[in-house]
């Protein structure tokens, strides 16, 4: 009797083990009213004291963002930006295991974030050096709140899309004002598009463009791979003609950021889950991080971890992607 029971239990366990490789089983059993990152967390840091001190009482609202940047020598910085309206923003810089390295304050709210031409981290208009400390030589104010993406390719480039055009400003390596030039390249779509992410990796710049596609009669995401070498010479455009974009990916939430990792592109779907996509737009897997629509979230370039800030509890989490 006991033997039979043991065999039965072993069989049930074996079946369960097999089922954990089944996507539907995993999706069903992973469902939770609580954020998925809680079960993926490998470390967290409590920022309540710092943030409450900054926020005080006199503000209308506040919000946050997280950016993960890696420079050419592999130094990774995790940046938590806390913005207050009115009242500017603090940028907290952590290493990859969430030890707070440094922090900087600026009296404006901007979400610029890139590794610049000097291999330093520019986040929210505050420059951090290669050791993730605040650089004493700060750039002047770089205008353009929504110019949320930037790359460095000899010079510094800041991107955004304005109507049918991909706009980019160029700055000198030292971010000297007065060297700013603006260029426009047609995206190749007559409809409004939005640039939801840009990242440099392996000699290419990956642009995540989201907007209405008349052929699909819905909003779609397209991932465009552009060689970094083309940037100093400027595009001749249109973007979607010169560089073949990925196939259109539907059901992607337009207001959220879209993240490039070496294991795929991550985008939030309408049903709040996240998709892991190939650069060609094929879905690799679907997983759940949070139901929040615009979470303060970013992925490391390796696709090993993501970092997410819980505004409810002022806690920054490092979580394993499981990719």
């Amino acid at each position: 009797m006991v033997k039979r029971l043991l065999v039965f239990i072993l069989l049930v366990l074996a079946c369960l083990l097999c089922l954990t490789t089944c996507d539907l089983f995993v999706a069903l059993f992973s469902l939770s009213p609580f954020p998925g990152y809680l079960a993926q967390a490998v470390a967290s840091v409590d920022m309540r004291e710092e943030i409450e001190r900054f926020l005080g009482d006199d503000y209308n609202h506040w919000w946050s963002d997280v950016f993960v940047l890696t420079n050419s020598v592999g130094t990774q910085g995790v940046f938590l930006v806390i913005r207050r309206d009115p009242g500017g923003q603090w940028v907290y810089a952590f290493n990859s295991s969430l030890s707070l390295i440094d922090k900087g304050y600026i009296d404006q709210n901007t979400d610029l974030h890139l590794v610049d031409a000097n291999d330093e981290f520019l986040v929210g208009n505050i420059l951090f050096d290669g050791t993730v400390h605040v650089d004493p030589a700060q750039p002047g104010f770089i205008p353009g709140y929504w110019r949320n993406s930037g790359i460095a390719a000899g010079l510094n480039y800041i991107f955004w899309i304005n109507g049918p055009d991909l706009m980019y400003d160029t700055y000198s390596t030292a971010w000297v004002s007065g060297t700013q030039n603006q260029f426009a390249v047609s995206v190749g779509s007559p409809y409004d598009m939005q640039l939801r992410g840009a990242r440099v990796d392996g000699g290419n710049v990956y642009l995540m463009v989201h907007g209405y596609d008349p052929n699909q009669d819905t909003e779609v995401l397209r991932i465009v791979e552009t060689p970094i070498g083309d940037y100093p010479n400027f595009f001749t455009g249109p973007l979607f003609t010169d560089y073949s974009p990925s196939k259109p990916v539907k059901r992607i939430r337009g207001e959220s950021r879209i993240y490039y990792t070496r294991k795929g592109v991550v985008a939030q779907s309408y049903d709040s889950s996240h998709y892991l996509l190939t650069a060609g737009g094929d879905r690799i897997k679907q997983f759940y991080i949070t139901h929040e629509r615009e979470p303060a979230l970013d992925f490391d370039i390796a696709g090993e971890y993501y970092y997410i800030f819980d505004e409810q509890n002022f806690r920054l989490y490092q979580a394993a992607t499981g990719f």
Binding site: V26, S30, G36, L38, A39, Q40, F287, A320, T321, G322
Partner: peptide
């Protein structure tokens, strides 16, 4: 138990 079956650590509710 909340668990995602991929590099996951359980959370108990």
């Amino acid at each position: 138990v909340q668990h995602n079956f991929a590099d996951s650590k359980p959370v108990f509710h």
